[in-house]
Design a protein around this nucleic acid. Structure first.
Lengths: 217, 217
DNA sequence: GACAAACGCGAATAATTAGTCGCATTCTTT
DNA sequence: AAAGAATGCGACTAATTATTCGCGTTTGTC
């Protein structure tokens, strides 16, 4: 076991090699699928390498052909989700600044819906996200993404209201992210109807949160 | 290792024996202190039994005199915190029902402040709470407490407005808990000034959340 | 001060699991 | 079809760590 290495070298999480033959790219998919399924089955407990290999119909050795360590597998699953946040929020910044309260409300709503969609589209990934949060090795990477996302929320807030102090924008961004994330995670564990109701709650809370910091007339 | 046992028998988390001599009750305190300190030092990674014993100036064997397993130690730390929620919320229910919007606002504020105080008073415990959430064995126990707390928030809401549907009260209770917990956890990681500002945000969000469900005149 | 119970010890046990390595098989290319 | 590269294999290694158990020491009690 070289467990200590993986904690230190960040590069150690990059894919080990690119698949060169067709069969092997299927194998990578099978590994990722197996990891996802097992994580979902086991709640928050991260699956073992052996379990992943077996579920994928492979041996452990084959798994290590494409992933340098176990963490890299989970991270590969999560990265798609994590990276869609920046895309979506940036898109909401490249838009004309709202000029009155009503337009502003609309912008909040759009950001709210777009971020909501990320969760709905990736509902099956949520157990992986939770597993990562609970994993001491992967947590720091999550935190990096989180900081990035907070900064983007803050940038969005300052796009909507340029007079907003940077520090305040950062704090509001943090709260928006946390509230959105916490509520959507629990929402997705319930039925669709409840999820939608919780979404309404989140929108109301977001509006209440940012409203006092609007100097629009 | 009998790791599988602990997952099944819930009793296995109860303290193994009561200290009979003076020296040993000090020992229990030392163990708990060591576990707390180490958890704080290591972020979310739960300390090993050996580490706990050493930090407490003891041997592993002594630790197992008083705790049936490692989980029980962390749980012992967390239970004080977890159990203060019911106390505090129940206290807020045993109070005359508010009769107008302003009194209602006051009641929200009181519940808000009382729950906030739980977090502030137990700030040092937060890493343990996070470690428990990330631990596959302990998570179910957290979830039980959470359900209880949600039920109490719901009971409070129906105390304040008896006309409120039970299902709605449950959902709002869930959201109140999640929002409060998420924001306070991150708030406590920042400076006191920021914590206070985030608290104001939470109060505003709670009010926005429950306001639509008030039929008071 | 003697006896038993409580306490404390830590080497040993055992379970779990990440990651490796040399060999076997399959594919690609010429 | 033959060579060589890529892929696949899985027994094995090694690290980690929870928990036990028998023995020595301390404490409270009569």
């Amino acid at each position: 076991m070289k467990r200590s290495l993986s904690r230190e070298t960040r590069m150690a999480l990059e894919p080990r090699k690119q698949p060169r033959q067709q069969r092997s790219s299927k194998v990578v998919d099978r590994i990722l699928d197996a990891a996802l399924t097992l994580t979902r089955e086991q709640g928050t407990r991260t699956p073992t390498t052996l379990a992943i290999a077996q579920r994928a119909g492979l041996s452990v050795g084959s798994v290590y052909q494409y992933f340098p360590n176990k963490e890299a597998i989970l991270l590969d699953l999560a990265r798609r989700w994590l990276s869609s946040f920046p895309e979506v929020i940036e898109k909401r910044i490249k838009v004309p600044r709202p000029t009155n309260r009503d337009e502003f409300r609309q912008e909040v709503r759009k950001l709210f819906i777009d971020t909501s969609t990320i969760y709905l589209d990736n509902a099956t990934l949520m157990p992986v996200i939770e597993a990562i949060s609970g994993n001491a090795d992967l947590r720091p990477i999550q935190d990096e993404y989180d900081e990035q996302i907070i900064a983007l929320y803050a940038a969005w807030l300052r796009h909507v209201n340029p007079a907003l102090e940077d520090k305040i924008a950062k704090r509001l961004g943090l709260v928006m992210m946390e509230v959105g994330h916490a509520c959507r995670l629990v929402g997705l564990k319930r039925d669709r109807r409840t999820f939608d109701l919780i979404e309404d709650d989140v929108e109301a809370m977001w509006l209440a949160l940012v409203n006092p910091y609007l100097n629009l007339d």
